[in-house]
Amino acid sequence: MGYSQPVNYAQLLFPDFTLILCGYLVCRYTALNRTVWDQVESLVYYFLFPVLLFQSIVKSPLDLGEASSLIGAGLLMGVIGIALAYSLPHLPWIGARIDRREHAASAQVAFRFNSFIALALADRLAGPQGLLLIAVLIGVCVPLFNVGAVWPMARHAQRGFLRELLRNPLIIGTASGLLANLLGFRIPVWLEPTITRIGAASLALGLMAAGAGMQLGTLARAKTLAVSVLGIRHLLLPLVALGLSRLFRLDSVQTTVLLCFSALPTASSCYVLAARMGYNGSYVAGLVTLSTVLGMASLPFALGVLR
């Protein structure tokens, strides 16, 4: 492949990481502080983003049989990621150095993913087909990953996670999009420009919101745990994805989408979930921030070197 390929991917990723940096700087150094970005995150998460997912799935006819190999590879990769994360306290050489409570809150960082960055990249890497495939992957993996994230913390929470999963706007947007696609529904021509602009706004604001949520400072303690979960997220999962793409005999576009999916930064909402369930949210926020930075290396690694 040569040296130029990773550089090209790094250039491709640059605009998205520039938006993340803009969000960070605007939040830290202007009057548009954290309280503003909390509202932006809610707008993107509950309205703009589900509309984008719905549109991405509806606008192209979907052959579930054709996408079944990618769906199978994505789900198996997710199960492997969850298993690796859960196993950390039981490993003989590092388990003794990991606090079980910190691990319960942080395990999710190893396998959850930033959907905003996923959608922004898929469109540029593989066009409308890539956007459709990543939307389908998000749809089938979000329920699995949310269960995987909540389960270790559930013994300290008084709320049923099944109810939370059923109310998840990403699941609602994806499920309704899949149903509409399979029933042959298409967005009316007169409505398309509005829906397209909502989608574009969701990507830009979502990336900036990811930057606004970044914070470091609490990672000095529990370094073993931090290195372990981030190592799974940014090194092991891309290698797993490469093996699965060959095992499932994925075509070039599906392989690109799976590798992109495997190397994404973790979900920016990890720290919200941890804090809401009574755990150390600031530590998880530090992991999310570091994961966002590491994504600048792991995405070119997966898409340029491995591919």
Rank of each mutant, 00 (worst) to 15 (best):
P6G: 00
V7I: 15
N8G: 12
P15W: 07
D16S: 10
F17L: 00
Y29A: 13
N33V: 00
D38V: 09
V40C: 12
S42W: 09
S42I: 06
Y46N: 15
F49R: 10
P50R: 04
L52Q: 09
L52N: 09
S60T: 15
L64Y: 06
A73S: 13
L75H: 04
G78P: 06
L84D: 11
S87I: 00
L88P: 02
P92Q: 07
I94D: 01
D99K: 03
R101Y: 02
R101N: 09
E102G: 00
H103I: 02
A104M: 05
A104D: 07
A104H: 08
A107W: 12
Q108Y: 06
Q108H: 05
V109H: 06
R112D: 04
N114F: 03
I117Q: 01
A118I: 05
A120R: 08
L121F: 11
R124D: 12
R124K: 14
P128Q: 11
L133A: 04
A135I: 10
A135K: 06
V136C: 13
V142Y: 15
N146G: 05
V147K: 04
V147S: 08
A149P: 07
V150L: 14
M153V: 12
R159D: 12
G160A: 06
S176G: 06
G177H: 14
L178G: 10
A180Y: 14
L183H: 05
L183F: 07
L191I: 09
P193T: 03
T196P: 12
L207Q: 13
M208N: 12
G213Y: 05
R233W: 01
L236V: 14
P238D: 01
A241T: 02
F248Y: 15
R249W: 05
L250I: 00
D251L: 08
L258Q: 09
F261K: 00
T266E: 03
S268A: 15
A285R: 13
S291H: 01
L294D: 01
L294Y: 00
M296R: 02
A297N: 04
L299A: 02
G304T: 00
V305S: 01
V305L: 05
